[in-house]
Design a protein around this nucleic acid. Structure first.
Lengths: 168, 168
DNA sequence: TGCTTTTATCTCAACGTTGAGATTATCAAG
DNA sequence: CTTGATAATCTCAACGTTGAGATAAAAGCA
């Protein structure tokens, strides 16, 4: 059964037959983008339900999963989030105002700013993460588990080839 | 070899062992999001090289692959692009100013606006698409073709289960 | 010690998207 | 016809991100 990407590839094949042999990457990358859009949109709704922006959820998540003392530099956060420095500064500003994180400048290197999850941030996050994972599971409810595993493994191979480094 | 998502899943398993069994969707959706980010960022650069925004490239692409007469309604474009109506209006405004598309209100249903690719838009697009596909191929250059095919098929199954309808 | 380069974060204006509401047109009854 | 409901697009203020430049601290080197 054709999906949206099959349609797109079919349309291009007709319109530009000379490019037919160059369309195969779209089958993979186009679908990854499409799936990511659905997942993003869905995750955004879950986060909003708990009163945080999508990007803020990302920061909370990165901090909590980093484990005690739930503290990372602004630089580590922007790399993990794949956004620019301006975006991280803004997110931290907003989150600090909400009491979710706090900036700590300690002695070692005074250029860096340590961002620490507050107990309130910790609390909010523990509620969101369950919802978030349940939502993700719901999205994939109709897909058999082996397809998920196999596809995830394929994506891992692709990301490795792309040089997507481990985070630590 | 672990990738960024393996690291994330590992961190969560340690921090919240009670959620260990609920992390499997992240293996798939997290990687899709990550791959999509790389692809998006790369596509954005290609489009910029030709003087168009990422979203504008999306519109050009949708119009051209739709085939003669290279005309779609604003509504069709916003569905294809998965964005809101405001975004499409703005994109069309900008693109019309650049001479890439033109609004045509013909008689049938005067609520709708037909967006038509101009000859200039056509020309710009034919240059971009080759670059774009070459860039996509370059991204996947180090991945063996069968992995791509297998993974793309897996993603199609997931998208179908999500109800991602064919576009026409 | 002094000078330059590099690193980390913040500042801020420009930009694109969102999302609710307004506008205008069509359709379905009555 | 007229009314009410539905549909398609546009308007616009609020919002988050980008990206270049500024600031300040640390590291490299003479």
């Amino acid at each position: 059964m054709p999906d949206a990407i099959d349609t797109i590839v079919g349309q291009w094949s007709k319109e530009r037959p000379d490019l037919a042999d160059a369309l195969w990457p779209v089958q993979l990358l186009g679908r990854a983008q499409r799936l990511a859009r659905f997942a993003d949109k869905s995750a955004k709704e879950i986060a909003a339900k708990h009163g945080v922006e999508h990007g803020e959820f990302d920061v909370l998540s990165t901090l909590q999963r980093s484990g005690p003392p739930y503290t990372l530099t602004a630089g580590a956060l922007l790399k993990a989030a794949m956004v620019t420095s301006g975006a991280i500064t803004n997110r931290i500003d907003r989150m600090e105002a909400k009491g979710l994180v706090e900036r700590v400048r300690d002695g070692e290197d005074r250029r860096t700013v340590q961002i620490r999850l507050t107990s309130q941030g910790h609390e909010v996050m523990s509620h969101i993460i369950s919802d978030h994972l349940a939502n993700y599971a719901r999205l994939l409810a109709d897909v058999d588990r082996e397809t998920c595993t196999r596809t995830a493994d394929g994506l891992r191979a692709v990301l490795e080839a792309l040089g997507d480094a481990s985070l630590r």
